[in-house]
């Protein structure tokens, strides 16, 4: 029997859809800022696999514009921080944090999810709102947001927030952390899009309407 069940509360949907364009603007403006001093790369010692340099960023449409990048970053940073704080506040008060906080079995389950998604493991995944991989990802991305904010503030106010700068290993340390947090956000986004596409329409629609259609077996009387 098909039933309509509540999946995502209105508040969560708001936080999600406000965050999406705001985070996109933060990544875009942030890369414009990093473009002015394009030192980050994937490599080790003298061996370099890939450089996030001006040339690469230009291919992505990240054009020169340090001042414009800063102007957007320091305006939308407020919305990113406030929306994130409200989200964490909501998770705390509503108890919804229990649904995304990983537990002892999450890591093992996440590995099973990976094997399942790569079609290596055939057994169906356990039925739950969020599987182990999702729990780790969704808690991880909240943590990532927190590190993004803290390292960003350390770069932004290195004298007033000198203690934060110290935590991240100085000015260049904070810049390094902030950059790679940004890259992890991008990685999260890519995996998220692929998984949402794989999960199908019913799942995607639930992030907009809040409900999803669930096929329930008739109970044996």
């Amino acid at each position: 029997m098909k039933t309509l069940q509540t999946k995502h509360p209105l508040a969560i949907r708001w936080f999600h859809w406000v965050n999406f364009p705001v985070l996109a603007l933060m990544v875009w403006s942030g890369l414009k800022i990093y473009r002015a001093y394009d030192v980050y790369r994937i490599g080790f010692g003298s061996w370099t696999l890939f450089r996030f340099d001006k040339e690469f960023l230009s291919h992505l449409g990240i054009t020169q514009g340090l001042a414009v990048g800063m102007a957007w970053h320091f305006l939308f940073g407020w919305i990113f921080a406030i929306n994130g704080a409200l989200y964490v506040g909501y998770l705390t008060v509503s108890g919804a944090w229990r649904q995304i906080l990983p537990n002892r079995s999450s890591l093992k389950e996440a590995w099973q999810v990976v094997l399942h998604d790569l079609r290596i493991r055939k057994e169906p995944l356990p039925k739950a709102k969020f599987n182990g991989a999702q729990k780790i990802a969704y808690t991880g991305v909240v943590l990532l947001g927190f590190i993004a904010l803290a390292s960003g503030l350390a770069i932004y106010k290195p004298v007033q927030l000198a203690f934060l700068l110290f935590v991240f290993g100085g000015y260049q340390g904070a810049r390094f952390v902030h950059f790679w947090v940004c890259m992890l956000f991008v990685l999260f986004f890519v995996v998220h899009i692929v998984q949402v596409a794989r999960a199908g329409w019913n799942n995607f629609r639930s992030m907009i309407t809040g409900r999803e259609i669930v096929i329930e077996e008739q109970p044996n009387v």
Partner: peptide
Amino acid sequence: MSDDQDFRRKPLTDPEVEIRRLSRRGFLW
């Protein structure tokens, strides 16, 4: 988008019809 009705216990309308109504509203938004 009221959450006061418990659709699980007693479907008031056809779920497919209901979700289409909610979708229209959602996508309009």
